[in-house]
Every structure is written in C-alpha cells, then in structure tokens.
Computed example of a mutant assay.
Amino acid sequence: MNHSQAVWGRNVLGKIGALVCILMFVALLDSCVSRFREPLFTVKLLPGTSEPVEGQLDPSVKDVSQLRIEAASHYASLSIRELRTGFWFGGNMWIGEISAAPDAPPGSYDLRVFAPTDKPGVPGAAFRAVVFKDSEALRQSSLSFIQRTFDVRPWVVSLACVPVLGIIFGLVYLVSTRIDQLLAREGCAEIFQLQKTDTGTDVWFGLGLSHGVVEGMEVVVADPAGHEIGRGTVLRADRENAIAQTSIRQDVLRGAYVRLLKHESKE
C-alpha cells in the first residue's frame, strides 16, 4: 500500500464511519419518537401469543389472591404470576402477562386490575390489548419507520452500529499509522494540530529528534498535493513530534504537511 492508496482508504473509511454515525442517530431518534408516541398501557398481540406486563401495588397487598381482574372479552386475558419488590426504587408490584386467545379476532380488548386499596370503581391498572390478524398487520401498526419498513427494531440497528464503528475506528487508526510511516520515510509528516498566533500559526507534526529534527531548523510546509506553500522554524522538538512556527494563515493549512529541507534538496 503506497501513500496515495492509504490516504484514499482512510478517506473512504471516514465517510463510511460518518454514514454509520448518521444511521445510529436516526435509529435512536426513530426509537425514541415511536416510544413516546405509543399509547401507554397498550399491548400489541397476535392470536395465541402473550406479552409480560406489571403494575404497582400498595405495600399492604401481600398476596395475588387479593387482586381482582376484569376482562371485557374472553378473547384477551390477564394473569398475575407473583408479587415482587421493585428493583430500582423498591415498592410493591405485581408481575403477569396479557394473552390473546388462539381464535381471537382483530380488535381492542380492555383489561383492568383492582386491589383492595383502590378507590371503588377505579382500577389500580388498566390495559388495552390490541390483537392483529397477522404479523404483517402487527408490523405495519408500528410507529417506528425502521420497524415498519425493514421489520427490525430501531434499537437493534443502533446497537449493531456500535461494533461496526469500533471496527471502522480501528481500521482508520491502522491506516493512519501506515500513512505516518510512509511519510516519515520521505522526511514528511501530517500536521495534526494548529494554533493561531500573532505572527501566523504554530503547527504540530509527527517528526522529532529521532528523525533529525532540532530546534531552529527550517522546514517546508506543503499542501495536500505536495506544493510548497511556505516555510516554518522549529520551536520545540521531542523524540517523535515537533512544533514549528510559520507565517501561513491557519485556513490554508487544512490537510497540509511538513517536509524536511534535507529531503527537499534530494528531490
């Protein structure tokens, strides 16, 4: 892999990474918007399936038998399995599931849970079970654009983007390291940091004492195409990096790199 191929590869990886970031953001937004638009206490089902539900209870309720369930139709039912203490904030709660009968026709079915501590006629929890004819009808009812279109939950898409971004960032790092190695062989290095000064711009680049750079040395500043756009003087240098002062405007230095004069003379 030569320098131009490595730069091209890094640019492509950067664009792919940007697209994946956009996809992850769109999926997160789609997930949040659809979640907030979804009516509370509504459970979507297919005939013969069930979904878990839960509800809060007064601490005085100690047994499932104290709860009373009302169902508007035998096509949808609610069963309570156990009472449990809340994981995050404590408190008493019941755990159960809402089921649709195998022969349940499409439609909405109301279910209510009453506890001895509830006000007369006011349920402690009220759910609406919405039964759909088939999987396609259930998918099309989703308020998520991604799920309606691709039959994939948006949070799954967001989660899948994380390892993909990790791989892309790793590849960008490897390719960037390769670019630095190729440039260093030619006495060149990309400028990785800029700081505006009263007299011009200070530039940080990846050549140091190990590459023959010393304080006071004059270096060439070139644009991405390799054309000289000015010169600079090294202010400080450590083993691997150095800072040079140049009178070139900061906006001209985007994508520029530094070249040592000894390599300039060889050319």
Rank of each mutant, 00 (worst) to 15 (best):
5 Q>A: 12
232 G>I: 00
192 F>C: 06
12 V>P: 09
49 T>C: 09
112 R>M: 08
79 S>T: 13
15 K>S: 06
197 T>R: 05
51 E>L: 06
102 P>I: 09
126 A>E: 13
119 K>M: 13
254 R>M: 12
125 A>F: 04
62 K>S: 03
234 V>Q: 02
89 F>Y: 11
239 R>A: 13
99 S>L: 06
207 L>A: 01
117 T>H: 05
140 Q>T: 11
232 G>S: 14
179 I>T: 03
264 E>V: 05
222 A>M: 05
247 S>N: 08
145 F>A: 07
156 V>T: 15
218 E>W: 05
109 Y>M: 07
74 H>L: 13
198 D>R: 03
168 I>N: 02
107 G>I: 06
142 S>R: 04
208 G>P: 11
47 P>C: 14
265 S>H: 15
260 L>G: 02
63 D>C: 02
43 V>I: 09
249 R>F: 11
92 N>E: 01
263 H>L: 07
64 V>T: 04
61 V>H: 03
249 R>W: 08
60 S>W: 00
197 T>I: 05
39 P>D: 14
80 I>T: 04
137 A>S: 10
120 P>W: 12
101 A>G: 07
82 E>F: 12
46 L>W: 10
76 A>P: 03
250 Q>P: 05
43 V>R: 02
65 S>K: 15
199 T>M: 15
24 M>F: 15
122 V>S: 09
59 P>M: 03
109 Y>G: 05
133 K>L: 07
54 E>N: 14
107 G>H: 08
222 A>S: 09
104 A>L: 09
90 G>Y: 00
77 S>Y: 00
95 I>V: 14
9 G>R: 09
193 Q>V: 03
127 F>A: 09
6 A>R: 04
132 F>K: 05
49 T>Y: 14
10 R>S: 12
61 V>Q: 01
77 S>Q: 07
118 D>M: 04
226 G>R: 10
125 A>I: 04
141 S>M: 04
167 I>K: 09
26 V>I: 12
